[in-house]
Amino acid sequence: MSTQVAQSGAQALARREGSPWTGLWAVVYKELADHLTGIRMQILETLMLLTAVGTVYAATQSIRQTIGEDPFLFLRLFTTAREPLPSFVGFLGFLIPLTAIALGFDAINGEYSRRTLSRVLSQPIYRDALILGKFLAGLATLAITLVALWVVVTGMGLFVLGLPPGGEEVARGLLFLVATLAYAGIWMGLSMLFSAVFRQPATSAMTAIAVWLLFAVFWDMLAALISQALRPTQYGGVAEELAQARLQLLLARFSPNTLYAETVIALLNPAVRSLGPVLITQLEGAVLGTPLPLGQSLLIVWPQFTALVAVVILLFAATYVLFQRQEVRA
């Protein structure tokens, strides 16, 4: 009896053989080719390119007219808004989630509805390779798009302003790129998760867009409402107002949009010294408006940046587990 139990225990422990990543690159190349040649991505990429050119051109016009001396003039290209256009960063905040959702919403249920899943999984690969391959291909597509945009913006800056970016400006620009990639990864991870949960690609796309709307439009209102209800200012003291502001900020930071916005502000504007409420006594001895070194700016956004990456990993892990447990047959 005991040997039987031991035997079955040993059997359960026996691992499946072969690397789970067999065939990973075949999946990555195929998905990447699909994304880059698909009409869906071409439309969104054209849209992003047009907004980049438009907003940066408007920014250069206003920079030429106003600025006298600014050590980080190049970074202004990303953040300067000129009526009626928002800044490049502002536009990106809208377009990136849409693009990322478009990349992932039919990743898994699309394979079911096209009836290709059992044929692909009967090839000598594990499911691990299929899901990771799709995720990496999506991230690579986003990275290619973002790098292309960044090069367009920098090139336009060189061309129109006639001024080369400094080393720190390039470094800040690249870090901004990495943060944007993480932010895009969140929306792609979310839409891929929904593509594993829902059977219909239309359902997963709508749900992902609904979540995005919630965070883009309603979350800040909700955060304000809840913090006013929980920490009312009855006597109007500083302590009360500080408590309310802190709670509101805490709630707002549950939204990836807030985390991304804070990261971008601190990276692209070296003068930003704090992302929370600051008391006047804390500013004693500070020279206002002087830029922080890159290391210090990075230190300010490190928690936000870590959170963005962590959410990407969590969403991918959830999708992975869900997909592994699904039946191959629809």
Binding site: R16, G18, S122, P124
Partner: peptide
């Protein structure tokens, strides 16, 4: 179950 790649 244990050697699916060999089978497939």
């Amino acid at each position: 179950t244990r050697q699916p790649l060999q089978v497939k």
